[in-house]
Nucleic acid binder design. Structure first.
Lengths: 134, 134
DNA sequence: GTCTCTGCAAAGTTTTTGCATGCAA
DNA sequence: TTGCATGCAAAAACTTTGCAGAGAC
């Protein structure tokens, strides 16, 4: 799957990738759009969507579709996991968490040729636990 | 989180739950709607969405938001994992796959109170690998 | 009888797409 | 120059919501 599916290195594409890598917030497409717009005021949301899709297919970024209705994107493509708060929806990295999944080589499963895996924990974040008024 | 957030056991709610449990296909809301409509022709898609949300909050079903733009639902709530084909989008269960995550008790991580986790593998399904014309 | 839940339809949100133009190679 | 990629705007796709009436308890 990783293989270039685009031909030109446009400024838009570069800035989208740079800003996504710089942010550590797993932004949605619109959040990233707002960020990118500070450098390229004329860019359109459609272009952001198109490029995120291409960059994801090329394996340069990760599309995190498991955190709610709106997709989130991650510029960090090395293996790492996430925790999501079921109350406020906040999503953050789990640094240095080790599982046997990382050590085990899994090439096939159920007849599928396995390319990778995603692991997400869910629970209640410190902030939401403190304000247990809700 | 599991705790009844609804008061009445309507026929709609029951049929939605029954059909979701019967299907093993991880249907989308509309797919389930079509199924349920065979038994309750007058039901509306809005009702399906409302009930899936309530049943998910009550812990009776699982909402799988990680398989594409459209959410999918699973009537099986016991711990099990999924494989998704990156080519055709097909999503299926991984039966009897064992990880240390299942054996390890994880109560907290990054300050979060951990309620559970989701694990999804992705790769290429047998069908899509055979037809490598694409 | 009360009050939650439904059906319907409209609105909201997120994502995709058509087309003329711009720009990287 | 060539044709891929962009900006714009409209459309599509998915989900939520307001309201009057129906039905569970």
């Amino acid at each position: 799957m990783p293989g270039l599916n685009y031909r030109r290195n446009t400024q838009q594409r570069q800035v989208i990738l740079e800003e996504l890598r710089r942010l550590r917030t797993h932004p949605t497409a619109s959040e990233l759009y707002e960020q990118v717009r500070q450098r390229l005021p004329k860019i359109s949301l459609g272009t952001v969507y198109r490029n995120l899709e291409l960059l994801n297919q090329a394996g340069l970024i990760r599309k995190l579709e498991f955190s709610g209705a709106e997709a989130r994107f991650d510029g960090e493509v090395t293996d790492h996991y996430h925790v999501r708060c079921t109350v406020c929806g906040r999503l953050q990295d789990v640094p240095e968490f080790d599982t046997d999944l990382r050590r085990r080589q899994i090439d096939s499963l159920c007849g599928f040729e396995i390319l990778g895996h995603r692991l997400e924990f869910f629970g209640i974040c410190p902030g939401c636990r403190d304000s247990t008024g809700s």
